[in-house]
Design a protein around this nucleic acid. Structure first.
Length: 554
RNA sequence: GCGCCUGUAGCUCAGUUGGAUAGAGCAACGGACUUCUAAUCCGUAGGCCGCAGGUUCGAAUCCUGCCAGGCGUACCA
């Protein structure tokens, strides 16, 4: 629709120029917007203002010339008028909107899908929590955002893969093994000192108990380092299983689980370090190896191999990202917690140093989640072992509410997640507001079927009966959906879909309260059923992208 | 100190990438259920868009400088 208006304008400008009414036919970047105020019509353009300097004419004068030359072969315009400093506002005939319903009817679950991605290979990596403890709410937000972004991109024509990176190597895993082994020794009656840097949570004791029941006291007879590694591997695997289960419970599935250790096993880490060394962007200082990230915009150089010979996580991250591009991804998106933002410049540096453009690498920085219970903060710290796990949260408030709430805010702003509010089935908690639309429409259809009056097949004449302002308003909202998705995909901001759904829900509830769908007039009833079914499809479609269910009853 | 994020109605937040009179929800107040689910709707009230400059036809949005809060600034992960 917007495109049609655009064409009308372009043609008008051209014809005005040909007839000598406009000195230039330079089409500057024209914009056609949907104004927020109804009084400003269905669409409006600022072209006259933008052209003012080129045409050397006052904006209102240009607007007047353009409107005079507008032809409307299809007869879609009710009227157009000039307003304010030089806007041209277009008012469409209500009937122009009806075909949108047909489009939805035909596209069904694919309505809103576009090909703006043109099959570009994208990878979205998210959660990637270390297997040293269970997922907490913060990870939940990352999971909800990453999953929704990937879904939306994919729906808009990008070729998207979802990946989880497993930090199954290095210091943290060692510490995990140590923590478990100490608890194990403790259980077998040994006196141990449990250091602060070890993981304090109860789950460490559970893991130790499991090892004890499987192996008895066998580990005590082994060299400490060996016993410790056995504990580490066992624990990491168990915890990772738990993470997988939690994510499944949360409705998040990954296409690929990528192991950090595999990068060492295959020699990728050494390989990329060699390459960088040959390029002269790695040097030795104080017994350590440094990568000259400062050559690529970082504020200082970074260590890749410590003076004790251990590689840093940064080293394997370089190899990991190199590997992503080798796998053919044209763009790589990492979803990180905001506390990692200092890591971005060095990662960008690594991407650039290995021969890729900076803009092929994006980081979505998800701000922190403050978990509250009735306004009171709930303490969270993996180390201290005091935290509310994601699983607990899902069990308490439900998956749908949790996912929706995580997506009701721009990811760049911190989120207060109040467990009591999330449980409320009120308008404080908009997930139900949106789901209720779906349930209500299902209910209408059920009722219609009971009465045997539910004629839901497509019928142009019936749809043409939809002339109430609330009906046109609803259809206009439905028509916006593809644009919303495209904008959400381009900006990688899933919350736009969330807000759109709340808008659509609001338009529907208003309509529902004012007009009856199952009327005695069969044709009107059919038209209205077609309308609400279209609404239901879009609601379901949007909720699905967000990972939220669309219930038939509530 | 430096860097990133945030600052919009009493509270929680949107604001279509620079558009017209800045919008929702909650809380407050007043209304609507013998009719398809009241987890809903309708109405009233509520604003130096942190502050001060700048850019232009036009700024909550872009630039500069301040102020406040959060986070980061390791041979930690």
């Amino acid at each position: 629709m917007k495109q049609k208006i655009k064409n009308l304008i372009l043609l008008a400008v051209r014809s005005a120029h040909q007839k000598g009414d406009l000195p230039s036919d330079d089409i500057v970047e024209t914009e056609v917007d949907e104004p927020k105020a109804e009084a400003h019509g269905d669409f409006s353009t600022n072209i006259a203002m933008v052209m003012a300097s080129v045409q050397k004419m006052p904006p209102r004068k240009i607007a007047e010339v353009i409107t005079r030359h507008i032809e409307d072969p299809e007869g879609i315009l009710e009227k157009s008028e000039i307003a304010g400093p030089g806007f041209i506002n277009f008012f469409l005939k209500p009937a122009v909107w009806h075909p949108v319903l047909r489009e939805i009817h035909e596209a069904d679950t694919r309505y809103g899908a576009t090909d703006i991605g043109k099959g570009q290979k994208f990878q979205v990596e998210f959660v990637s929590s270390n297997p040293t403890g269970p997922l907490h709410v913060g990870h939940g937000r990352g999971a909800a955002v990453g999953d929704a972004v990937a879904n939306i991109l994919s729906f808009c024509g990008y070729d998207v893969q979802k990946e989880y990176y497993i930090n199954d190597s290095g210091r943290q895993i060692h510490t995990l093994g140590q923590s478990v082994f100490l608890r194990y020794q403790e259980m077998l009656g040994q006196k141990v000192k449990f250091p602060d840097e070890c993981y304090q949570g109860d789950y460490i004791r559970d893991l130790a108990a499991e090892i004890k029941s499987q192996k008895g006291d066998a580990l005590l007879g082994q060299p400490e380092e060996e016993a410790l590694m056995i504990c580490a591997r066992f624990a990491a695997e168990k915890i990772l299983d738990g993470i997988r289960d939690d994510l499944k419970l949360f409705g998040v599935e990954f296409d690929c689980w990528f192991s950090e250790q595999s990068l060492y096993d295959s020699g990728r880490v050494d390989q990329i370090l060699d390459i960088f060394r040959n390029q002269g962007i790695i040097y030795e200082k104080d017994g350590a190896l440094w990568f000259k990230t400062s050559d690529f915009g970082d504020e200082k150089d970074r260590v890749v191999v410590k003076n004790n010979g251990e590689t840093t996580y940064f080293a394997s991250d370089i190899a990991y990202h190199q590997d992503k591009y080798d796998r053919g991804f044209e763009r790589v998106v990492d979803v990180w917690g905001a506390d990692h933002h200092g890591y971005i410049p060095r990662m960008k540096a690594a991407v650039e140093a290995s021969g890729h453009r900076r803009d092929q690498f994006d980081v979505i920085l998800v701000q922190l989640v403050n978990l509250l219970r009735a306004g009171e903060p709930v303490a969270m710290s993996t180390r201290a072992g005091k935290f509310e796990t994601l699983k607990d949260v899902i069990n308490e408030v439900g998956r749908d509410a949790a996912r929706f709430i995580f997506l009701t805010r721009h990811y760049e702003s911190a989120l207060d997640f109040d467990l009591e509010v999330a449980k409320q089935k009120s308008n404080d908690n908009p997930v139900y507001y949106v789901q209720y639309v779906h349930a209500r429409i299902s209910s209408i259809v059920r009722k219609g079927n009971e009465q045997g009056t539910c004629e839901v097949s497509w019928d142009d004449k019936a749809v043409a009966r939809l002339i109430e302002p609330e009906e046109i308003d609803l259809i206009k909202t439905l028509a916006r959906y593809p644009d919303v998705l495209a904008g959400s995909a381009k900006s990688m901001e899933p919350h736009r879909v969330t807000y759109y759904l709340m808008d659509l829900a609001s338009a529907f509830h208003a309509y529902y309260n004012k007009h009856r769908v199952l009327t005695d007039d069969p044709q009107l009833r059919c038209g209205r059923l077609n309308l609400v079914l279209a609404v239901q499809k879009v609601i379901r479609n949007g909720l699905t992208l967000l990972g939220v269910s669309a219930p038939d009853t509530m």
